[in-house]
Amino acid sequence: MYCNKIPDKPVDNEKIWKKLDDLARANSLWITAYGTGCGAIELRPLHTSRFDMERFGIAMRPTPRQSDVLIISGYLSVKTLKRVIRVYEQIQDPKYILALGSCTIDGGMYFDSYNTINILDRYIPVDVYVNGCMPRPEAVIDGFILLMKKIKEGKAVGWKRYKENLEYYRKNQREIIRNWDLPDYNW
């Protein structure tokens, strides 16, 4: 029992509460606890007393249904990309993507690998990049603060871009995932 419908194009009809919504969304970012690459090891210190990201209202959620942010932590192999697409599409709107490390920007030190992607933005819409190999926790916190600022200004609209240009992203995804067996949209 699953739904195979392609999502509707997003419409902008939340004028009244928009200010309050953006403020609440920026101050309560919940992360899907899913480490896609080596950078996931840099997220653990963020919980602990030294960096303490709970003071920004950031928390880890174990399921994509309840979270807002998906962190692509470092290199992304094609096999993981398939799972990332599933997880990303299961997150409820609005959702944001934070990409860590130079591997997500231009391939980084894995630019000539046969199995890792080079440019992440072709396959899923990225809101904030944090560069470095790997970025230290301070840099990740800086990325989060930038994401908060973008949300408050209403500029973090990767999820709208994804729904509007679904065909473009699907085409790029299907090009490199050879055994494509996902439904049209993973609700």
Binding site: K79, G107, F111, I117, I177
Partner: peptide, 26 residues
């Protein structure tokens, strides 16, 4: 590990991984 791989297996030394990466991933 590789799902649905076609062509020369990637760990053989006559497989040009840089060229493949350029061609496939941009």
């Amino acid at each position: 590990l590789l799902e649905g791989w076609e062509g020369i297996p990637p760990m053989r030394r006559d497989f040009d991984t840089l060229e493949y990466s350029m061609k496939t991933y941009g």
